[in-house]
Simulated scan of single mutants.
Amino acid sequence: MYPYSPISLIDLPSTTCYSSSIAYLSVSVRNFNDCLCLLDGRLSQLHTFIVKVYRIHNTSMIINNTKTLSNLKCFSLISFRYTIEYDNHILPYLRQMSQLEKLTLSLIVRHRTSFIDGAHLFNDILSKMLYLHTFICNIITGNVVMDAEFLPTPDDVRHPLIEKGYNVNGYTDYTNLSNGLCHIYSVPFTMDRMHIHSNKFAGGLFITVRYLYLQDYVHSFEHNFFAEISRAFPLLRTLMIFNLSGQEKLRYQPNEQEETSSIIEFSHLITLGLTMCYIDYAKQFLFDFNTRLPYLKKLYIKYEDLMIVTEIFTNNAARANCSKLERIIFDLEPMSYPENFHLYFPLL
Results as ranks from 00 to 15, higher is better:
2 Y>N: 11
3 P>Q: 11
5 S>T: 12
9 L>T: 01
13 P>A: 14
14 S>G: 14
15 T>G: 13
19 S>P: 04
20 S>G: 13
23 A>S: 12
27 V>R: 08
29 V>E: 03
30 R>Y: 00
33 N>C: 13
38 L>C: 07
48 T>L: 13
55 R>M: 07
58 N>P: 08
65 N>R: 14
65 N>S: 10
65 N>I: 06
66 T>A: 02
68 T>V: 11
75 F>P: 03
75 F>K: 10
76 S>C: 12
78 I>N: 11
79 S>M: 02
82 Y>P: 03
84 I>L: 08
86 Y>Q: 15
88 N>L: 04
89 H>M: 10
89 H>T: 14
90 I>E: 06
90 I>H: 01
91 L>A: 14
92 P>W: 03
94 L>H: 06
95 R>L: 15
97 M>F: 02
100 L>T: 04
100 L>C: 04
100 L>I: 06
107 L>M: 09
108 I>D: 03
114 S>M: 07
115 F>R: 06
120 H>S: 03
123 N>Y: 05
125 I>D: 02
128 K>P: 00
129 M>A: 03
132 L>I: 02
135 F>D: 06
138 N>W: 01
139 I>Y: 12
149 E>N: 04
153 T>R: 15
155 D>E: 15
156 D>Q: 06
156 D>H: 03
157 V>K: 08
163 E>C: 12
163 E>Y: 13
168 V>C: 03
169 N>M: 11
169 N>P: 03
171 Y>V: 00
173 D>Y: 04
173 D>N: 09
178 S>R: 03
178 S>I: 04
181 L>G: 06
181 L>P: 00
184 I>T: 12
184 I>N: 13
187 V>R: 05
188 P>C: 05
192 D>Q: 13
193 R>W: 04
193 R>V: 07
195 H>N: 15
199 N>T: 00
201 F>E: 06
208 T>W: 09
208 T>V: 03
210 R>P: 02
210 R>M: 09
211 Y>N: 11
212 L>V: 02
213 Y>T: 05
223 H>Y: 00
229 I>Q: 10
233 F>H: 08
233 F>G: 14
235 L>G: 11
243 N>S: 10
245 S>V: 06
246 G>V: 00
249 K>L: 03
251 R>P: 03
258 E>R: 14
262 S>F: 01
265 E>Y: 02
269 L>C: 11
269 L>W: 06
270 I>K: 05
271 T>H: 06
272 L>G: 01
273 G>W: 04
274 L>T: 05
277 C>D: 00
279 I>N: 00
281 Y>T: 15
283 K>C: 08
284 Q>A: 15
286 L>R: 08
290 N>I: 07
291 T>W: 00
291 T>D: 01
301 I>V: 14
301 I>Y: 07
306 L>S: 09
306 L>K: 12
310 T>N: 04
312 I>Y: 12
313 F>M: 07
314 T>S: 12
314 T>K: 09
316 N>T: 15
317 A>L: 08
317 A>G: 10
317 A>K: 11
319 R>V: 01
328 I>K: 05
330 F>C: 09
332 L>G: 09
335 M>F: 07
336 S>D: 07
337 Y>G: 07
338 P>I: 00
339 E>T: 04
339 E>S: 08
339 E>H: 08
340 N>W: 06
342 H>W: 13
342 H>M: 13
347 L>S: 09
